[in-house]
C-alpha cells in the first residue's frame, strides 16, 4: 500500500448561478482517500455530498455550475480543467461510479452483459468475445447466480438488488482505482442492503480499490467506512476516523445527526419517548450569512458563531471540526 492519498481534493469551490443569486454549493472542500480505504461522506439532502462526487467525475452541470477554484488530484494527475477527451479516458477506467437508482441508470434496451462489455471495450483494447467473457466474470464476481445466463438478461428481468450488483460489476469492470458509490443502497430493502455492503467490502478486500461512499445514513457509515466527512451547507463540518467521530462527535450537527435517528436498541423498554430534534431546516445556499451556516439550528450557539464562520481545526490528531464551541473547549 502506498502512503500518500490516491485521490486528493483540495480547497474545492463550486458555484451555481441561480436566479436568486450565486449559490456556493461546495465551499473549500478538502478530502483525501488512500488506497484500500473507504471514505464516507454524510449529510442531509442539499448539503453538497452528491455534488462532491460529480465534481470528482468532472460531471458538474455547466452552466449553471462551475468549479471556481481548487484541485482534484488522482495520483499526480490534476482533474480540474483537464480536457474532455482525457477525462473520458479516466471516467469509468480509473474512477468508477455507482448511482442511487439502479433502474434508471441501466439502459433498458441492452442486456446487462452487453452493457458491461461496452464499458470494457471503451477503455481496453479487447475484442467482443473477450469483453463478453469479462462481463460474465464480473457478474460472477458480484455473486450473481448463473452469470452466463444472466448476462443475456435485460434490466427489467432482474430485481433491484441484482440490478445494483450489475451496476457494481460495470463500475468495477475496468478495475478502477477509485469507486464512487452515491447512495448505493437507498432504493433497496434492508436485507438486500446488507448483501450489497458485504459485496463492496469483499471486493475491496480483493482489489484494494479506494471507495468514496456517499450516504445520509450514519449506520451505513459506521458499518462500512474507515474515515468520515460530515457535510453541511456545502462545507465539511467534521472529519476523522469513523470510530472516533461516532463515539466522540465534536460538531453539534454531527451529534444531532447521530442522536435524531431512532436506532435499534437492545433494550427497547428504555427508549425515551422523544427523539432529539435538530430544529428548523437546511438554509438556502444563496443567502448564507457571514457566520456559521449551522448557527440558526444549533443548540450550543455562542455570539461568535453568528458573525464568523469557523474553519476546520484539529480537535484530536486526525480529527477535525469546524465549530467555535468545540475550539473553545480545546483551549
Amino acid at each position: 500500500m502506498t502512503a500518500g492519498p490516491l485521490l486528493s481534493v483540495t480547497d474545492l469551490v463550486v458555484d451555481f448561478k441561480t436566479r436568486a443569486g450565486n449559490a456556493r454549493v461546495l465551499d473549500h472542500i478538502s478530502l483525501d482517500v488512500k488506497e484500500g480505504e473507504i471514505l464516507g461522506i454524510v449529510g442531509e439532502s442539499g448539503c453538497g455530498k452528491s455534488m462532491t462526487a460529480l465534481s470528482i467525475m468532472g460531471l458538474v452541470p455547466n452552466p449553471p455550475g462551475k468549479i471556481t477554484s481548487g484541485s482534484i488530484k488522482l495520483g499526480d494527475q490534476e482533474l480540474v480543467d483537464m480536457d474532455i477527451e482525457a477525462l473520458r479516458k479516466i471516467r469509468g477506467k480509473e474512477i468508477g461510479m455507482i448511482f442511487q437508482e439502479p433502474m434508471t441508470s441501466l439502459n433498458p434496451v441492452f442486456t446487462v452483459g452487453e452493457q458491461i462489455a461496452e464499458s470494457v471495450r471503451l477503455h481496453e483494447n479487447v475484442g467482443a468475445k473477450a469483453a463478453h467473457a469479462r462481463a460474465v466474470e464480473m457478474l460472477k464476481a458480484v455473486e450473481i447466480p448463473e452469470p452466463e445466463a444472466r448476462a443475456h438478461a435485460y434490466p427489467h428481468q432482474l430485481s433491484g438488488g441484482m440490478r445494483q450488483r450489475v451496476m457494481i460489476a460495470m463500475a468495477l469492470s475496468c478495475r478502477p482505482r477509485v469507486l464512487i458509490a452515491d447512495e448505493p443502497t437507498t432504493a433497496l430493502d434492508t436485507t438486500v442492503q446488507a448483501q450489497i455492503f458485504d459485496l463492496l467490502q469483499n471486493l475491496q478486500d480483493e482489489t484494494g480499490t479506494a471507495i468514496v461512499l456517499i450516504t445520509h445514513d450514519m449506520g451505513a457509515i459506521a458499518e462500512l467506512a474507515d474515515t468520515v466527512a460530515v457535510m453541511y451547507a456545502g462545507k465539511i463540518v467534521e472529519k476523522g476516523k469513523v470510530d472516533r467521530v461516532l463515539s466522540h462527535p465534536d460538531h453539534p450537527y454531527t451529534k444531532g445527526l447521530i442522536a435524531c435517528v431512532p436506532h435499534l436498541s437492545a433494550n427497547p423498554a428504555a427508549i425515551s419517548e422523544r427523539l432529539m430534534e435538530i430544529p428548523g431546516v437546511v438554509p438556502a445556499l444563496t443567502d448564507l450569512g457571514t457566520g456559521c451556516a449551522f448557527a440558526p439550528r444549533c443548540s450550543e450557539v455562542i455570539t461568535k458563531c453568528r458573525t464568523d464562520s469557523p474553519r476546520l481545526f484539529e480537535t484530536q490528531p486526525e480529527h477535525k471540526a469546524a465549530c467555535w464551541v468545540a475550539q473553545k473547549e480545546m483551549t
Binding site: S159, Q193, D198, Q201, G219, A222, E223, L224, V242
Partner: peptide, 21 residues
C-alpha cells in the same frame, strides 16, 4: 441487517445474512 451506529466494520461480518430475494 439494519445498519447501526453501534456497530462497526469488524463485527458486521459475523452476523447472519439472508441470501437471495
Amino acid at each position: 441487517a439494519v445498519p447501526s451506529v453501534h456497530q462497526n466494520k469488524r463485527n458486521r461480518r459475523e452476523r447472519i445474512r439472508l441470501v437471495g430475494d
